[in-house]
């Protein structure tokens, strides 16, 4: 019985992994092909050519685009978490009039289609002189990272037992100390998770990045990938496209591997006992 259960469990794990990874695996296979071979279906690599990778990595600006993306995404995460942790404290631990309304207003920002704010944001970005700088992206990305991080952190912080905070208040701790010294250590799983999701969202954003930058050295990775094209207007360079996708996905996988101990570690049972 236990063995069957275990077998079924691992089967489930296997299915999850295969479904998640297969398209990526297929992208890797495709990235190793060139020319007409691209139009043939193969389940295993039949041809191993790194031409696509060399052509991506040696293209003048691609490494720079990766750096841009890293800089923008990291800044967005730091900013979003900083603003969101403090806001979440106020929204979850302090009772004041209009709190629900405020939460709903924050949420409402996420209700507007990105495409509809494009024109207004563009005027704003140009007006503030941020056009074609990474700050235009850091600035505009808060529109989708901030509501999300605020909400998630508010929910998590609300569930932290009140006794911990009371103890700190009795010790004379200011709210800032409570946040940084008491709550933050308890919230690592939530912080890392939301941070990671925000990072990925910023890393993948295309529309704003395309609109608010114009020079190749300022562009981010998704735009750089969107700009990969074949020798002629209609040709889609599948091989190179897939190679570039593989290259940009790897850092994220590494990031997850680094941070996952934090995600797992979670709360020690004793720390949160309510």
């Amino acid at each position: 019985m236990a063995i069957i259960k275990k077998a079924l469990f691992y089967l489930l794990v296997l299915v999850i992994v295969v479904v998640s990874v297969f398209p990526f695996y297929y992208a890797i296979i495709t990235s190793l092909k060139t020319g007409t071979a691209l139009f043939r279906v193969d389940f295993w690599p039949t041809q191993i050519s790194f031409d696509n990778y060399t052509s991506v990595l040696t293209s003048r600006n691609f490494p720079r685009n990766v750096l841009n993306s890293l800089f923008v995404s990291a800044s967005v995460v730091i900013l979003a978490l900083l603003f969101a942790v403090t806001a979440a404290f106020a929204l979850s631990r302090v009772r004041f009039r209009g709190r629900s309304l405020l939460l709903l207003t924050v949420l409402a920002v996420s209700m507007f289609p990105q495409i509809a704010v494009l024109a207004g944001l563009f005027e704003l970005v140009r007006g503030m002189g941020l056009y074609n700088t990474p700050f235009a992206l850091i600035f505009s990305y808060t529109i989708f990272t901030l509501p999300f991080t605020v909400w998630v952190l508010t929910t998590f912080m609300r569930d932290l037992p009140v006794e911990i905070e009371e103890a700190a208040i009795v010790d004379g701790a200011t709210p800032w100390v409570i946040i940084t010294k008491v709550f933050m250590p308890l919230m690592w799983p939530a912080l890392v998770t939301t941070g990671l999701l925000a990072f990925i969202a910023a890393w993948n954003e295309f529309l704003f990045a395309l609109t608010f930058t114009s020079s190749e050295v300022q562009r981010t990775v998704p735009v750089a990938i969107g700009l990969l094209s074949g020798a002629s207007q209609y040709e889609i360079p599948w091989g190179v496209l897939m190679a570039a996708s593989v290259i940009v996905t790897v850092p994220l996988v590494v990031l997850v591997l680094i941070f996952q101990r934090k995600i797992v570690a979670g709360l020690t049972a004793g720390g949160v006992k309510g």
Binding site: S214, L227, L228, S229, G230, A231, S232, Q233, E235, P237
Partner: peptide, 10 residues
């Protein structure tokens, strides 16, 4: 500055 929608041979 000139903008064009072609990153290949064009």
């Amino acid at each position: 500055s000139m903008v064009l929608g072609d990153t290949g041979t064009g």
